[in-house]
């Protein structure tokens, strides 16, 4: 579950004011709004990357309002993936597990499992340089899911992709979410993404939530 309760965030002169919404466990929520509406800022606040002025954020059973990003147990995929240029794809999938001092056989097994799930087995030894946009997003999603987070936060992961790749990733994201059961919050400005993926839609305008709706279109 993702519960955002009366959250206020101030970034310079921009303000997200008294925002509340909830995404039940295992559901796919989409945060939609125009450029500059505050959706990325809100996502970053949920991840713990932007401090909030008021309100609370609960992820699963845990009130994470005062917790640092590392303690929130969230998988985060920023726009364009933000892959680590000095690491191979395998290193990306192993990174969070190495930080947690997971044993090497367990890491190897998890990397293989993720590579299968995301269909990137053939990319494991590659550097991020030279990967296509779709491949980069698969790696970024794998990296975010590697430590089995309770929540997955996606910041416009499909915005820079061509139509064919976007279609492939719709299927992949849906498959991943059904396979892992991770509660997902996906930021987008494309109505088509909402139609294809969302269980729940939160529409934000100028820092204020204007619509929260169950989404059944195309499902």
């Amino acid at each position: 579950m993702i519960r955002v309760q009366s959250v206020t965030v101030q970034v310079g002169k921009f303000r997200i004011d008294d925002v509340s919404f909830e995404i039940p466990s295992g559901e796919y929520g989409m945060l939609m709004g125009k450029t500059g509406s505050g959706k990325t800022t809100l996502l970053e606040a949920v991840a713990g990357l932007k401090p909030i002025r008021a309100g609370s954020i609960v992820l699963g059973d845990l009130d994470v309002t005062e917790l640092r990003p590392a303690e929130r147990h969230v998988g985060y995929v920023p726009q364009d993936g933000a892959l680590f240029s000095t690491m191979s794809v395998r290193d990306h999938l192993a990174f969070a597990l190495e930080i947690r001092r997971v044993s090497k056989p367990e890491i190897a097994s998890r990397v293989e499992e993720l590579a299968n799930l995301l269909e990137i087995e053939h990319l494991l030894t590659r550097s991020p340089r030279g990967l296509s946009g779709g491949e980069r997003q698969r790696v970024a999603i794998g990296r975010a899911l590697s430590f089995r987070p309770s929540t997955l936060l996606l910041d416009e992961p499909l915005s820079a992709l061509d139509d064919d790749t976007r279609e492939q990733l719709y299927s992949l994201l849906k498959h991943v979410q059904q396979h892992t059961g991770v509660t997902t919050l996906h930021v987008t400005h494309h109505q088509h993404d909402v139609a294809r993926l969302a269980d729940k839609l939160i529409r934000i305008e100028d820092g204020v939530v204007v619509v929260v709706a169950e989404q059944k279109i195309g499902k």
């Binding site: 970053e44 991840a47 713990g48 990357l49 640092r68 990003p69 590392a70 929130r72 969230v74 998988g75 985060y76 920023p78 933000a82 892959l83 680590f84 240029s85 000095t86 690491m87 990174f95 969070a96 930080i99 947690r100 990296r143 975010a144 590697s146 430590f147 936060l153």
Partner: peptide, 25 residues
């Protein structure tokens, strides 16, 4: 700096994110 932010969400402290992600880059 989003690479560093990702490292923080992956479980790194500031020091770990700096040493393992920022410094190699």
């Amino acid at each position: 700096d989003r690479r560093e932010q990702v490292a923080l969400t992956l479980g790194c402290s500031r020091m770990q994110a700096f040493l393992r992600v920022v410094l190699p880059e």
